[in-house]
Design a protein around this nucleic acid. Structure first.
Length: 273
DNA sequence: ATAAACGCCTGGCGGC
DNA sequence: TGCCGCCAGGCGTTTA
């Protein structure tokens, strides 16, 4: 569910709420979320203090001193902070018991999310973080590098932009919005993307993501962040979920197709192959 | 070597 | 109302 703006919103909220707090104990109710040895996971997290929460691509990194707890929310992962007395919800799979008496709860209806512990010293040099491309909002993002990568591939440009090793942070919503901004058809083959288009894509991706971060992400379907706070970017969507609504630019009705199995919204007039 | 399909899970929705 | 198939913002693994 969450893409870069939603993950960043969660990061900020959690950093504000639990930075400096100590984890007394962790209860893993649904173990498949955890990668690696479960006993080690629980033991390592016992009596550690959360120094802060960082983000890389769509990963959250809980700084616990010499290690990071990497958390990926995949489709529906969420965090909630609740008092100890609150009963465990059926979708809460991992419970962090905090020293102040509260609890941090990982909630995930579809159970696709993952958590794993990584040594800090090489976390960026080993998978999964080493596999991530740059984020479009990073100052040193290189549009020419994007151009060169796209040049040597043949797939639909939408599929390439969803590939986190090429460019990280975009998901299905923001890819549709980026392609609309750039006036590019989602099925245009990557090797046909011009230098100018690659630069436009980089700029559009950056602008879309930045604006979404500023607005606290998008709340569509049932998504809310850690405190149940809703983002406001859904009001800014131009094409995503807008099937049969008029395009803001040309009034033609927005089309929905499938690209590699993913629901894809675009304007047939404004976005050319 | 690359790209498309599958699998992981559950719940909500529309159609019958 | 109930059942059924389809859909969902991701990504690692398997197959073609």
């Amino acid at each position: 569910m969450p893409e870069l703006p939603e993950v960043e919103t969660v990061r900020r909220t959690l950093d504000h709420l639990i930075k400096g707090q100590t984890i007394k104990e962790v209860d893993v109710i649904y173990p498949n979320i955890v990668k690696g040895d479960l006993k080690t996971f629980k033991k390592t997290l016992q009596n550690v203090t959360i120094q802060g929460i960082e983000r890389k691509g769509k990963f959250l990194l809980f700084d616990i001193g010499d290690k990071y707890l990497l958390s990926h929310l995949r489709m529906e992962g969420k965090y909630f902070i609740k008092p100890l007395s609150e009963p465990i919800n059926k979708h809460e799979h991992i419970i962090f018991y905090l020293a102040d008496g509260g609890t941090l709860r990982y909630h995930d209806v579809r159970k696709f999310g993952t958590m794993e512990l990584k040594d800090k010293h090489d976390v960026y040099d080993t998978p999964p973080l080493s596999l991530l491309g740059k984020e479009p909002i990073e100052p040193n993002f290189e549009p020419m590098k994007l151009y060169k990568t796209l040049k040597q591939k043949k797939k639909a440009v939408k599929t390439a932009l969803l590939d986190q090793s090429i460019i990280s942070g975009l998901g299905n919503i923001y890819v549709d919005e980026t392609l609309f901004c750039a006036n590019i058809h989602p099925e245009k083959r990557t090797y046909k993307i011009t230098k100018k288009e690659a630069h436009t894509l980089a700029l559009c991706a950056k602008n879309v993501l930045k604006k979404a971060v500023d607005l606290g992400g998008s709340s569509i379907r049932s998504y809310t962040d850690s405190l149940g706070i809703s983002g406001r970017f859904q009001n800014e969507l131009k094409v995503h979920l807008k099937k049969n609504e008029p395009c803001e630019t040309c009034n033609r009705l927005i089309t929905k197709i499938k690209v590699n199995g993913r629901g894809t919204y675009f304007c047939k007039t404004c976005q050319k192959r």
